[in-house]
Write a protein that binds this DNA or RNA. Structure first.
Ligand SMILES: [Mn+2]
Ligand SMILES: [Mn+2]
Ligand SMILES: [Zn+2]
Ligand SMILES: [Zn+2]
Lengths: 145, 145
DNA sequence: CTATATTTGCAACATAATTGCATTAACATG
DNA sequence: CATGTTAATGCAATTATGTTGCAAATATAG
């Protein structure tokens, strides 16, 4: 089995990005989590390994290339998650529901839940849908009960 | 017919808020627009009529009382719109779709469009749904064609 | 009119995000 | 494997958004 770092390096090369430490570190962190990761958390974890500005630029480059996608939580904080297959520089395919837990504040990508089509007033042309559900995630609703 | 300012004054009194210039001005601005209004725009329009901090506090008070609701656009910018009837200090009823035009960047409250119910994975408990559609609004898709 | 609680303005602070520019490092080429 | 070119990083400065504490002003109840 191909190891993780090798996979990440290929991913970078495929997208015309150089194989640098900050980029590999961001991929490493994001891939190790079961929910989307906030910018502040990333900044804290990376600490002095990379400058704040570098982190912003890495995230921006990854988003443009279709490697990660951004979700804003209810407070407007940017959160990032690795895209599932099918996203590219030219088109994102992340039209799944995002679940924002009120308790642990994690944001889950519910890839399995498709957003239902929508009837909008005449004249409006819908391009993308972005559905954020809030409530309790599976973990937290377990603990509460 | 009752004039607008009188209506606003009653609205404030009903919610236990004093009838002050900044509050009336915010209501005036919001009510004169057909789409949600961003915080930066409000700040710019109010100019030196009120301090930035006052604006934030007015918006916060209005939101708590169910007079306005906040919508974050795709960039995470706060936008505000007057609530339709039925919102109060204890409960908002603004589960309509928000339409974010890619061209003019206006955010429309599509009160008529209800958000369809959603099947989420076992364990997840949905409390609220927040659906933002992006694309072209009626005005802009007219102009393009 | 006056007392009181609310609201405002100001100053300071916190955090997220962006820009310009000099330095460094990746890697293609030979 | 050396090296030149280009991409990427680090640092400093700046902008934007939002918050907090506190003193001064003012809306309004009585
Ligand atoms: Mn997602
Ligand atoms: Mn609305
Ligand atoms: Zn949770
Ligand atoms: Zn438009």
């Amino acid at each position: 089995m191909e190891n993780k770092t090798e996979r990440f390096e290929k991913l970078l090369v495929k997208n015309g990005l150089k194989r640098t430490a900050p980029r590999l570190q961001v991929l490493e962190i994001l891939s190790g989590r079961d929910s989307a990761t906030s910018q502040p958390y990333l900044e804290q974890v990376m600490g002095k390994d990379a400058d704040r500005v570098t982190l912003y630029r890495v995230l921006q480059a990854f988003e443009e290339k279709g490697i990660i996608h951004k979700v804003l939580d209810q407070q407007g904080t940017a959160n990032y998650a690795i895209c599932s297959d099918g996203c590219s520089a030219h088109e994102h395919h992340d039209e799944h529901v995002h679940f924002n837990c009120d308790n642990c504040h994690k944001i889950y990508c519910l890839d399995s839940v498709k957003i239902p089509a929508l009837k909008v007033p005449t004249g409006f042309k819908v391009e993308h849908l972005n559905l954020i559900a809030t409530g309790l995630c599976a973990n937290c609703s377990d603990k509460v009960n």
